[in-house]
């Protein structure tokens, strides 16, 4: 590798790691709580860490614990996991519009790291998203998730309650911190976020959808509707 290419690779990796710090903090209380709950469900520490390392998906892992506790069969748990996580298809498809050209193998590798949080951070990045950036970002998120699941299994109950409570805001603060700068730039983005937030609230409070489906459907629906409206407005302005 040329030294300039190597320098660029390094700087992208470091930017990814830096961008991942907030996610690592945000995962801390969620992973600790998962570890604690897994221990109460009867999973060993090896099983707990292995689940976080192989599945790497918060909502689905929580759900699987309650299903394991209820003695639901393995196939049913796997199907539920699939249904909860299918929203990542939409996120990866969207992120694919923003990533630098790379071999399929490299993309398939960092695809493993796509979560709600890594997706949100990468997708609103100003510059193109590169492979080393994704590796740095996902590595931070992944290590926090896996390590803190283990820690939660061991010491979960001994964490001060007020700290655990107040850290529960971290992921939402992260999302707000990502969204607000873009809101200030374009009216279209305000409409997108608001419409999707309203639809999601309606779906969750009235419907019987799981949160994964509700988020995916409201995001897709708002993105299509807003694209149609703003396209019409642009055509009218041109005339």
């Amino acid at each position: 590798m040329h030294s300039t290419a190597l320098a660029k690779y390094k700087s992208e990796l470091i930017q990814g790691i830096q961008a991942g710090i907030s996610i690592a903090i945000g995962y801390f209380p969620v992973a600790i709580a998962f570890g604690l709950l897994a221990e109460r469900t009867g999973l060993s520490i090896a099983e707990t860490v292995m689940m976080s390392a192989i599945v790497f998906a918060g909502a689905a892992q929580y759900m699987s614990l309650s299903l394991i506790a209820a003695h639901v069969g393995a196939w049913e748990i796997i199907m539920t996991t699939f249904i909860v996580n299918i929203r990542h298809f939409l996120m990866s498809a969207s992120l694919n519009e923003k990533v630098e050209k790379d071999s399929i193998w490299i993309k398939a590798l960092y695809g493993f790291g796509v979560t709600d949080e890594t997706y949100a951070v990468a997708a609103v990045r100003q510059e193109m998203v590169t492979a080393p950036y994704m590796f740095g970002l996902c590595l931070m998120a992944y290590s926090s998730w896996v390590i803190n699941s283990g820690i939660g299994h061991i010491v979960g109950e001994n964490l001060p309650a007020f700290l655990q409570e107040s850290m529960g805001i971290a992921l939402y603060a992260l999302f707000i911190g990502l969204l607000v700068p873009s809101l200030k730039k374009h009216r279209k983005i305000i409409v997108l976020a608001l419409l999707s937030a309203v639809i999601n609230s309606v779906l969750l409070t009235t419907g019987r959808l799981s949160i994964g489906w509700s988020i995916a459907l409201s995001s897709l629906f708002s993105s299509v509707v807003v694209e149609c409206i703003f396209r019409k407005l642009e055509v009218q302005q041109d005339e």
Partner: peptide, 22 residues
């Protein structure tokens, strides 16, 4: 449409869940 998805997803990730953390 896919370029719109990040902002719509952020909206849905925040609301209403943020009000139910406690």
């Amino acid at each position: 449409v896919l370029k719109n998805v990040p902002y719509a997803t952020l909206g849905a990730l925040i609301v209403p869940s943020v009000f139910f953390i406690h």
